[in-house]
Structure formats: C-alpha cells, structure tokens
Amino acid sequence: MAMTLHFESVIAASPIIIDGIILTIELSASAIIGGTALALLLVGTKSLAPKYVGWLVDAYVELMRNTPFLVQLFMIFFGLPLVGMRMTGVQAALLAMTLNLGAYSTEIIRAGVDSIHKSQIEAGLSLAFSRLQVFRYVVLMPAIGRVWPALSSQFVLMLLASSICSFISVPELSGAAALVEQRTFRSFEVYIIVTVTYLIMALTLKLFLAWLGRWLFVGISMNAASGEKG
C-alpha cells in the first residue's frame, strides 16, 4: 500500500479553512464572554437570591454538566424552531456554547466564592457596603482569581468542543475541514492541517489566559496560596 500525502489541493482550498478559523475564533470568544457573564449572573443569583431560586440554578448546572454538548446542540438547533425560534446553525452553536460554558463556569466560580473566608464578607458588610457591593468588590475578584486556572482550562475545552458544531453543518474549522474533504478527497491531509491549527489555537489561548490571569489578578493568587486551608 503506497502511502503518499498530497497537500496541494488542500492548500488550494485554504480560503475555506481560513474562514473556518475565523468563525471558530468568533464563536469561542463570544461564548467565553457570554458564558462568563451568564455564570457571574447565576453565581450572584445563587449567593443573593432566595434558596429555591438557587435550586433552579443548581438544576440548570447539573443538567448541562451531565448531558453531552452534542445533545444540547441538537435540542437547540432542531427543537427551538418548533416553538417558533428559527435560527441559523451559527446562532444555535453560539447559544449552545454559551449555555454550556455558562453552566461549567458557574460551578467553578461558585467553588471560588465558597473559598472566600466569611470574615472577609463580614468586614465588607461592616464597612457599610450593601450585599451586592460586597459581592462585587470583596468576593468576586478574589474568587475568580483563585479558580482562574480551572476556568482557563474550561475555556480551552470550550474552544476544542466548538468543533462539535460541525455536526449541524456550522462551517467553523471542523465544518470547513469536512467541506474541503468532500471537495478534495484528501481526508488525512485535511485533518492534519486542521489538527495542527487547533493545536496552535489552543496553546495560544492557554498562554493568553495565563497572561491575562497574571494581569487581572495581581496579588490575588498569592493571597490564595497563603489563605489555603492546611
């Protein structure tokens, strides 16, 4: 069996791949921003709202964390149009990614909030901050700082999971790969190029998040280390 690789035709189709890369970046960036915002909202709700609202948040988180992203994506893409919410594949992908990442981030950030010492909160309250102000200024930033590594890995996992959106024909990087494969019949070559591209994107995101963490949370992780329970 002769085993030769031919990249020429694949390279000729590179505009499709490049569009795919751009869409993957757009989807992931939006989902990271949207998912984090959703998570902050849910964590805030859980900390401040009555108990039964908190249970609803828990139920949502558990549902999302214990079912596959693919099934969530199908539910949104095939199901929502039936109740009158027609949407494109890209919109469905963005919604699914945001809801999924939102659930995971809620769980992570909540763990960070739980690790903030009660005395910190009491100190804040005694300075006449409102509960919302205490949450925002005293609890949230240190909490996120402490769980930043876990949060960062979750963001990277989301970037990688965005490839699953190709199942509903979204032309992000994996979807683009499928298109090029159909056109060129050079499966292995296409997937080598695409895999290396993912590798570069994921490593870049990891480095960027590590840098962002150092920049955003100056001093906080050091507090975390000394505040850690023995």
């Binding site: 292995f188 695409v194 993912y198």
Partner: peptide
C-alpha cells in the same frame, strides 16, 4: 500536551483516517 490541545473529534478523525491510510 498535544492530545489535550486538540478536539476529541480530531483525535477520532486522525486515528481513524491515519489507520485507513496504512490500509
């Protein structure tokens, strides 16, 4: 490092098509 930095989907494709390539 490599496996954790690529989608599971690509791991599947690569192993699958990789093996096919070897016949």
């Amino acid at each position: 490092l490599v496996i954790q930095s690529i989608p599971v989907l690509m791991v599947l494709f690569m192993s699958y098509y990789g093996l096919t390539l070897f016949g």
